[in-house]
């Protein structure tokens, strides 16, 4: 897949952005483009209290796939097997996209963990005929499995292609492996759509614990499975309504950008521009 998508001639959308360390030292926002504020037909919803968000550092990500494995284990995501993956029926809620660029015969790679972006103006919610996906008051895009009838309109309308359809009754197949299921996470049935929940079971647990101790949820209390297992600590999760949280700080960083932000879907997940340890001009491509 190209790192830039051309939608109309002359307009390109960067999915991954990168720069070099020398450029970055001169200008911390190098390789990044300022995000335009788009006009919206409707006024934005106000999220009082928490609003969960995530920042992923493309510079730190090594593409080791620990986040994918931990997400699979935490959220009872079925292992579909080689045949079904070949039919594009993989069900991992979190995938790692790879973007390659040729650099004088050498190859540059950018890894990009891609999960549900929990868009503020979620295109998936608008098209659901049975209201099986809607927004929580904390900015989470929720999927209601019992209500879903499996039209898959939402997956078709998702610009990030992060929604997964359950084609089989996987949990009835491996009775023994069911013992490894996480009891905190619902097991989905055949014919429903599912996707990253920002590990809502962990959010709820941290909120209940904080409530029991009579305090507010602290930054760092909640760590989704992917953030917890990332050896490079490339994934940061937190409350973007709290200006002191790490994710809020990262959002103000000049390296921060959001994928396909020009669609005005207001994703809650942001990425940090990848900084390569080489000098500019040494054949280093500015964009993949």
């Amino acid at each position: 897949m190209p790192a830039r998508l051309a939608s109309v001639p002359g307009e390109t959308r960067d999915i991954v952005r990168e720069t070099t360390i020398s450029e970055h030292r001169k200008d911390p926002s190098s390789g990044n483009e300022p995000q335009r504020k788009h006009q919206s037909v409707w006024p934005e919803h106000v999220y009082e209290g928490h609003r969960w968000g995530m920042a992923v550092d493309l510079g730190a990500c090594t593409g080791c796939s620990a986040c994918v494995v931990s997400c699979q284990a935490e959220n009872n995501v079925p292992v579909v097997g080689k045949d079904e993956v070949g039919r594009k029926r993989d069900m991992s809620w979190l995938r790692i996209d790879r973007y390659y660029a040729d650099r004088d015969g050498d190859t540059d790679v950018v890894f990009q963990p891609m999960m549900c972006q929990q868009c503020g103006n979620a295109p998936c919610e608008t098209v659901c005929p049975v209201l099986a996906t809607m927004h929580s008051t904390e900015g989470l895009n929720q999927q209601i499995y019992n209500r879903c009838v499996g039209t898959r309109y939402c997956a078709n309308n998702c610009p990030y292609k992060t929604r997964r359809f359950n084609w089989f009754q996987y949990q009835e197949e491996g009775r023994l492996s069911n013992l490894a299921l996480n009891p905190d996470v619902t097991v989905r049935m055949r014919g429903v759509m599912e996707k990253c929940t920002f590990c809502i079971q962990r959010i709820q647990e941290a909120k209940f614990e904080a409530k029991g101790q009579g305090r507010a949820v602290r930054d760092g209390d909640i760590r989704p499975a992917c953030a917890q297992s990332c050896p490079a600590q490339a994934i940061v999760f937190g409350d973007v309504n709290d200006p002191k949280s790490r994710v809020s700080q990262l959002r103000k960083d000049p390296r921060h950008y959001r994928v396909l932000a020009e669609l005005n879907v207001e994703p809650s997940v942001g990425y940090m521009v990848k900084v390569r340890g080489r000098t500019a001009g040494a054949g280093g491509p500015e964009h993949g």
Partner: peptide
């Protein structure tokens, strides 16, 4: 009230 895709 239900927030559907950020619509009012």
């Amino acid at each position: 009230p239900i927030n559907i895709g950020g619509k009012p």
